[in-house]
Simulated scan of single mutants.
Amino acid sequence: MDPTGLPFVIDLCRPILALRFAEPRRMLSWSISRPGLTVAKTVAWLEVNDSDLPIGREPVAVLEDAFARQGLTDTVGLMTACDVSAYEICRTTIEGTEAIAITTVGLGNGEFVGRRRFAGSAEEAPIPGTVNTFVHVSQPLSDGALVETIAIAAQARTVAILRTTESIGREIVTGTGSDCIVVAAPLGGTACYSGLHTAIGEAVGASVVEATRRGTVRWIEQSARWLESEADSNHPPGIGP
């Protein structure tokens, strides 16, 4: 996708993928840093592995230390075991309202909502995997509309994962145990509704479905290659994607 005309700059330098806005945005998320409603100019992913998260070290401390080294202050932060350069982006405009979705997809610890596979026991420890989704809406959204938008984004992400995993006969999941969504919009809060009947909801849904679909396909293809390489090796299996 052509990055020109985006309302933010994409700054990729592994292990960090940062989206930098020139002007502050109203954001809503359950990010491990700055969760809830907040105003920020940056959203960033941190790519980590097991060695980055030793026992006793709080993930938020790892995240904030990494961001501080890169001068990322007041950042809404996401953490993933995925390669952050493998992000997907989709841009949709409906009736003058633009929604941009960026996602990284890993389903190694996939779950089906309402039926846990991994309940925290060491014997069941999953392979790292997270679906992190960012959505920017071009219209200023009220607090209520931000909440509605995050619900639409969650619905769209789940539909994309369900359809894609089901279509190729893999175990069907609805997400992972560590997924996160961030929605952002300009300051002002003039739009009060963003549901499925609105242009905002349609644009958000379309962008998130397509970005998540592409990310899920990419993860499935990478997983197949990793399993092939592990099967051909003589050493014990390592951590997959």
Rank of each mutant, 00 (worst) to 15 (best):
L53K: 07
N49L: 03
P35W: 15
V60K: 09
V43H: 11
T42F: 07
D50F: 05
A61L: 05
P54L: 02
S31T: 05
A44E: 03
P54Y: 05
W30C: 02
I55T: 14
S33C: 12
S31D: 07
L53M: 14
L37K: 09
A40T: 03
V60R: 11
V48F: 02
G56R: 06
G36H: 04
L46K: 08
L37I: 10
V48D: 03
S33P: 01
I32T: 08
A40F: 12
W45M: 06
D50G: 12
R34L: 13
N49K: 15
A61D: 11
E58R: 15
L53N: 04
T42G: 00
W30R: 10
L53F: 05
P59T: 06
T42Q: 08
V39F: 10
L63R: 04
E58L: 13
V39G: 01
N49R: 15
A61E: 05
D52E: 13
P54I: 01
E58C: 07
D50L: 08
L46M: 03
D50M: 07
I55C: 11
S51D: 14
A44L: 01
R34T: 01
A44T: 01
W45Y: 12
W30E: 10
L63E: 04
I32A: 08
A61M: 06
N49M: 07
R34H: 12
L46A: 06
W30K: 07
V62E: 03
P54Q: 04
L46G: 10
W45E: 05
I55Q: 14
V60M: 09
V48S: 07
I55P: 09
A40L: 09
L37C: 03
D50N: 08
S33F: 05
